[in-house]
Simulated assay, not measured.
Amino acid sequence: MLSEAALIDPDWLRPEFTGLSVQAFMTTRAGGVSQGAHASMNVGGAVEDDPAAVAANRARVSQALGAQAVFLHQVHGSDVARLAPEHVLPGVPQLKVDASVSTRPDLAVAIQVADCLPVLFAAPGGVAGAHAGWRGLAGGVLENTVAELCAAAGCQPGQVQAWMGACIGPSAFEVGADVLQAFGRAPLLHDQPLFSYRPNAAGEPRWRADLVGLARQRLQALGLGSISGGAWCTYSEDSRFFSYRRERLGGRMVAAISLR
């Protein structure tokens, strides 16, 4: 029987959490069984992939974690769920939230993405993950996740370590004035911190947003013990990552973490 480490594809991203006993990774395109546009490690069930292939890929995630990965029905919100055994019972609907916390070694956090930012958290006695697109980020999903993790694990923010996975990068993430306003910025026609003004071909005002920078700013304000990652662009690295903006019916990746 293959070990958990042997089931982690060498191309997957591997966060490091110092001094904590966790298993964590973010998948890439590599290492699964899906075919065609979903080749090969697609974990998304709503992108017209073969359901049997999706199930096999999700099973590999759980096997590599050594725990049952609990996938969520993500809705671009800011709510957080604390995982419990009933969430993996047959026929139980997926939790309709964008973040989860686990204090159980048998239940793993799993966050699906294909341009939005996944953030994994580890602390003594607990792990968590958040799906941080711009809506969730502006709505406080990271702050809510850290608060729930600290409550569940009985720790302080300074004991929490955060790792940011792959997402759409600042050279590719084109947004409108509504996104600036969601982050409390006035839509002035010039560069602003973490928003670079770049009108589109029709001359309409657009900005390129730094999603990782916006997340890091919020994580730093929480006083976490360490913040790392965020060095990959899903949109521009097309041979390695799926991207919703580049291929809407392409695959979905997962950032996952479990206690050992």
Results as ranks from 00 to 15, higher is better:
Ala172Ile: 01
Ala147Asp: 15
Gly176Leu: 07
Val146Asp: 12
Ile227Glu: 08
Ala151Pro: 11
Ser196Val: 09
Thr145Pro: 12
Gln217Cys: 03
Arg208Gly: 06
Gln161Gly: 01
Thr145Ala: 11
Glu143Met: 12
Gln192Leu: 04
Leu224Gln: 11
Gly176Lys: 08
Glu174Trp: 15
Leu180Lys: 10
Asp210Glu: 10
Cys150Met: 13
Glu143Leu: 10
Leu194Gln: 06
Asn200Ile: 05
Gln156Leu: 14
Ala209Phe: 03
Ala215Asn: 02
Phe183Arg: 10
Ser226Leu: 00
Ala202Arg: 05
Gly158His: 04
Phe173Cys: 01
Glu204Ile: 01
Leu194Cys: 07
Gly203Gln: 05
Ala221Asp: 13
Ala166Gln: 06
Gly169Ile: 01
Ser226Ala: 13
Leu214Thr: 12
Ser228Phe: 06
Thr145Phe: 10
Cys167Glu: 02
Cys167Ser: 13
Trp163Thr: 05
Ala221Val: 12
Ala162Pro: 09
Ala209Thr: 11
Trp207Gln: 01
Gln181Asn: 06
Ala209Pro: 07
Arg216Phe: 03
Ser228His: 03
Cys167Gln: 03
Ala172Asp: 15
Ala147Asn: 13
Pro170Arg: 02
Pro199Ile: 04
Trp163Phe: 11
Pro157Val: 15
Arg216Trp: 06
Gly225Ala: 07
Leu222Arg: 15
Val175Trp: 10
Arg216His: 08
Gly176Met: 08
Tyr197Arg: 00
Glu148Ser: 13
Ala172Gln: 13
Gly213Glu: 04
Thr145Ser: 12
Ala182Trp: 01
Asn144Glu: 14
Ala153Tyr: 11
Val160Pro: 14
Ser228Thr: 08
Asn144Gln: 15
Ser226Tyr: 07
Gly154Val: 09
Pro205Arg: 04
Pro205Trp: 03
Cys150Val: 14
Cys150Leu: 13
Phe173Tyr: 10
Gly140Ile: 14
Ala201Tyr: 08
Gln161Trp: 06
Gly154Gln: 07
Ser228Glu: 00
Arg185His: 15
Ala172Tyr: 07
Gly154Pro: 06
Arg206His: 03
Ala215Met: 08
Glu204Phe: 02
Arg198Glu: 05
Tyr197Asn: 05
Ala172Ser: 09
Ser196Ile: 03
Glu148Asn: 13
His190Ser: 08
Gln181His: 06
Leu211Tyr: 08
Phe195Tyr: 00
Glu204Arg: 04
Ala147Val: 14
Gly169Cys: 01
Thr145Val: 14
Asp178Trp: 00
Ser228Gly: 02
Ala177Thr: 11
Pro193Val: 02
Gly203Trp: 02
Phe195Thr: 05
Phe195Gly: 07
Leu180Gly: 10
Gln181Ser: 15
Gly230His: 02
Leu194Glu: 07
Gln181Met: 09
Pro157Cys: 13
Pro187Tyr: 09
Asp191Asn: 04
Ala151Lys: 15
Leu180His: 05
Ala186Asp: 03
Gln220Trp: 00
Asn144Asp: 12
Trp207Ile: 05
Glu204Lys: 04
Ala166Phe: 04
Ala215Cys: 09
Ala221Trp: 05
Pro157Asp: 12
Gly230Ala: 03
Arg206Phe: 03
Asp178Met: 01
Gly169Arg: 00
Asp191Gly: 03
Asn144Pro: 10
Ala147Cys: 13
Ile227Asp: 05
Phe195Lys: 07
Leu142Cys: 12
Leu211Ala: 02
